[in-house]
């Protein structure tokens, strides 16, 4: 190599390790390296190229376990390889790789009859992120009851509290991951699910909500006051009843998702 600077060497090496199957490794690199033990130069470089694909595929598989379950091994590995070649990792943390996998599935549509896959991937990415979020200390039931007497209050929710909605039954599908796919009856993908995700005792819980509950909680999560949230949800769900509202408040209390309550200013 002789005249190659360290920077030039690293660029050449990196390009060779990321290269696609039909591309030849950089001749200058192949000719100048000394392969280990009984490897050829080509094979020595392949050790690094294979390792790159394996590591990134494993990272995707760890995050998108349910997408893998639905796609099956062969298709998932094919998809992962295509994704990795189109989307090199720019993160220092391998477990953060694959943020745009859902968009990739949306665009690629590898299974035209499985339109729910992008939503399933979005759910899994959200789940992974919630796993790494801190767990708040919920306000006590007594505080909630006392504050609700004060009228137009605002709720602050814990950082791990998130909503997820899909026209597909992503949560039901996600729960099947890890089971033997052949033994499962074909799930009905086309059932809408409205979900509340939150953490308690360092574990993530998922609770299915009715659309009206979801709407009200969504409004509260955006920071609207209770009155504003109710008005907003009533405009979309005029049939919303007092028992439904009470039911949601019971959920909010029992799940411990409220971190703080602000009284009327």
């Amino acid at each position: 190599m002789g005249t190659l600077t360290l920077n030039q060497y690293q660029r050449l090496f990196s390009h060779t390790a990321c290269r696609q199957d039909h591309e030849a490794p950089g001749a200058r690199l192949v000719e100048s390296i000394t392969p280990g033990k009984d490897l050829t130069s080509f094979d020595a470089l392949e050790v690094y190229r294979r390792g790159y694909l394996v590591r990134l595929t494993e990272a995707l598989g760890e995050t998108y376990e349910a997408v893998w379950w639905v796609a099956g091994d062969e298709e998932f590995f094919r998809l992962a390889k295509t994704f990795i070649q189109c989307h090199p990792s720019q993160t220092y943390n391998l477990s953060s790789y694959g943020e745009v996998f859902a968009e990739f599935l949306e665009k690629e549509r590898p299974f035209p009859d499985l339109g729910f896959l992008p939503d399933l991937a979005r759910f899994e990415w959200l789940f992974k992120n919630i796993f790494h979020l801190s767990q708040h200390e919920p306000v006590s039931q007594e505080t909630i009851q006392a504050m609700t007497q004060q009228g137009n209050i605002r709720f602050q929710f814990g950082p791990s509290v998130h909503l997820f909605s899909s026209p597909y039954s992503v949560y039901n599908t996600w729960k099947l991951r890890g089971t033997c796919r052949e033994e499962q009856p074909q799930p009905d993908w086309n059932i809408a699910q409205h979900l509340l995700l939150y953490k308690k005792h360092q574990q993530i819980f998922v609770k299915e909500l009715q659309p009206v509950e979801y709407s009200l909680l969504e409004n509260l999560l955006t920071g609207l006051s209770l009155e504003e949230a109710l008005d907003n949800s009533l405009s979309h769900y005029p049939e919303m009843s007092q028992p439904e509202i009470s039911q949601l408040f019971q959920v909010m209390i029992h799940t411990g998702i409220i971190q703080n309550i602000e009284g009327p200013s």
């Binding site: 360290l6 660029r11 990321c18 690094y48 790159y52 090199p88 990792s89 220092y92």
Partner: peptide, 25 residues
């Protein structure tokens, strides 16, 4: 070691030549 370029991190422990240039860096 180095682990790749920032635009395409290989997430591997990669070899580099043991030179004065590398030592200075």
């Amino acid at each position: 070691c180095w682990t790749g370029l920032q635009a395409s991190n290989l997430h591997d422990l990669l070899p580099f030549p043991y030179t004065d240039e590398a030592l200075t860096l």
